[in-house]
Simulated assay, not measured.
Amino acid sequence: MISIAIANQKGGVGKTTSAINLATALAATGHRTLLIDLDPQGNASTGLGINQRDRGHSSYDLLMGDCTLDEAVMATLVPGLDLIPATQDLSGAEIELIEVEQRTHRLINAFSNGSDHRWDVCLIDCPPSLGLLTVNAMIAVQSVLVPLQCEFFALEGLSQLLQTVERIRARFNPGLSILGVALTMYDRRNRLTDQVADDVRACLGDLVFKTVIPRNVRLSEAPSHGMPALIYDMRCAGSEAYMALARELIDRLPKQEIAA
């Protein structure tokens, strides 16, 4: 199973929207996909139409060892897409994990004890921080996908995130890599948007995906209906952009692991 953390410590960059729609696109293209909601806000779970009362076992239970990977998984309305939802309990996990044995390896241990061969790809929606939850995700995955909002302050946050990835690689997960940086909330009417995009590409080169995700009202509306934008309105500019981004992402995945 190929595992990817979708991470950025800055909030409001389109991280959860990217997680939901990329997971949907991967499932639509025949990849058996698992999405893990590791954000205490639980927006990825809500965006896939999973009500709070319907969330049995959660990512919190998985981290604390109260359930197995198989027990935490639930089906979604998207064929081929499974979810491990988040509940409000996850908001206290950062503090509780401090006193837990192997606190940074709880998620990867859950993977090793579960049936992860059921899926081709696993996406993890990380919280907007670089705390223990995000560290657990980065230790458990092979690569990190970074959604980056096209604004000046996002560049400063990107530098900090890349440093964190380097530290995780050096101490815990030598195989960790940056899969790519996805530019989000792109507004062609704003000249600063173009400048930020150009600066990121000049700095990171081919690491930046060619596809950019535009500001799009349908992307914002879809979660209120409990649907990915690709199902809510598959012909809107945002959905078409995420399908294009998913094709780029698939091209970067190791083919032998998908086949396995």
Rank of each mutant, 00 (worst) to 15 (best):
E99A: 14
A72P: 03
V78K: 09
R55Y: 08
L81P: 04
L63R: 00
N43K: 12
T87P: 07
E94H: 01
H57W: 12
D89Q: 14
E96H: 05
T46F: 11
L81I: 03
A44R: 05
A110R: 02
M64I: 14
L38M: 14
R106P: 03
G80M: 10
L38A: 09
A93F: 00
G65T: 04
D89N: 14
G56E: 13
A44V: 08
D82M: 08
S45Y: 01
A75N: 15
D39C: 10
E94L: 00
N113G: 09
E71I: 02
N51Q: 13
I108Y: 00
T68A: 06
D89A: 15
P85C: 10
H57L: 08
G56F: 11
L62D: 05
H105S: 13
M74P: 05
E96S: 04
F111R: 08
G47N: 08
G49C: 07
L97K: 12
D39S: 11
A72R: 02
D37S: 08
A44H: 09
E101I: 14
L77R: 15
N51V: 06
G65S: 09
A72W: 03
M74R: 15
G65Y: 01
A86V: 01
V100H: 09
G49F: 01
H57T: 05
I36E: 13
M74D: 05
I108Q: 12
E101N: 10
E99I: 08
S58C: 03
Q52H: 05
G42E: 03
G80H: 06
N51R: 15
D39E: 10
D82E: 14
L34V: 12
S58R: 00
L38K: 05
S59R: 01
P85I: 09
N113H: 13
R53Q: 11
T46W: 02
V73E: 12
H117W: 06
L77W: 02
P79G: 13
L62F: 07
L34I: 12
V73D: 06
D89H: 09
P79Q: 15
I95D: 06
R106T: 07
A110S: 14
R55A: 06
I84R: 04
G65V: 04
I98C: 04
L77N: 13
D61V: 07
L90W: 05
V100F: 05
V100R: 14
G56Y: 09
A86Q: 00
S91K: 11
E94M: 00
D54V: 02
P85T: 07
L48H: 03
P79A: 14
S91I: 09
N51E: 14
S91L: 06
G56W: 08
C67E: 07
